[in-house]
Computed example of a mutant assay.
Amino acid sequence: MIRRQFLALTVVASLIAPAATASEPKKKGGGEGYTQFNTINVFTEASRRRHGTLSVDMGLYSDDAKLVEQIRLYQPRLQDAYVARLQAYAGSLNSSALVNADFIVMQLQTATDAILGRKGAKVLLGTVLLN
């Protein structure tokens, strides 16, 4: 008898648990004002190989809710501008070069301000990898 009651409670608990977790809002990594972009991969010159790769993981942060919405709407255009700027920079790199993260941030920030038409969104770099 106790075994049946235990099984019944287990079944009821398994049905209630997903409903309780589904109603909770999912926490966004980086905060409400952070917009994560896909990793950007561009090609570089490499010795004795076909090419190397520069990979940049980044996002934009803004305190202004209207600007965050604009960033989400303009995300494809921003991604395209970032790829163009990084490809131009990566063309000057070879396999033994050191990556200048400050220059990359400056280039991405300039592209961001130009596309959005105003300042206020800050470029945040995650990972920069030259392979």
Rank of each mutant, 00 (worst) to 15 (best):
M1R: 12
Q5G: 12
A8F: 15
A8L: 14
L9E: 02
T10M: 15
T10G: 15
V12L: 14
L15R: 06
S23H: 06
E24I: 15
P25T: 15
P25K: 15
K27F: 05
K28Q: 14
G30N: 01
G30T: 12
G30D: 02
G31W: 09
E32H: 01
E32S: 13
Y34P: 07
T35S: 13
T35L: 13
F37N: 07
T39I: 05
T44I: 08
T44A: 08
S47H: 14
R48G: 03
R50D: 12
S55A: 14
V56N: 06
M58K: 00
M58A: 15
L60D: 01
L60A: 06
S62T: 11
D63V: 02
D63K: 10
D64Y: 03
A65L: 11
K66L: 12
I71E: 01
L73C: 11
Y74P: 00
Q75T: 11
Q75N: 11
L78D: 08
A81F: 04
A84Y: 11
L86S: 03
Y89T: 04
A90M: 12
G91I: 05
G91P: 03
S95R: 12
A101F: 00
F103Y: 14
I104L: 14
V105G: 01
Q109A: 06
Q109T: 11
Q109I: 08
T110L: 01
A111N: 03
D113Q: 05
L116R: 05
G117L: 02
G117W: 05
G120E: 03
K122W: 00
V123W: 05
L124H: 08
L129Q: 10
L130T: 01
L130I: 07
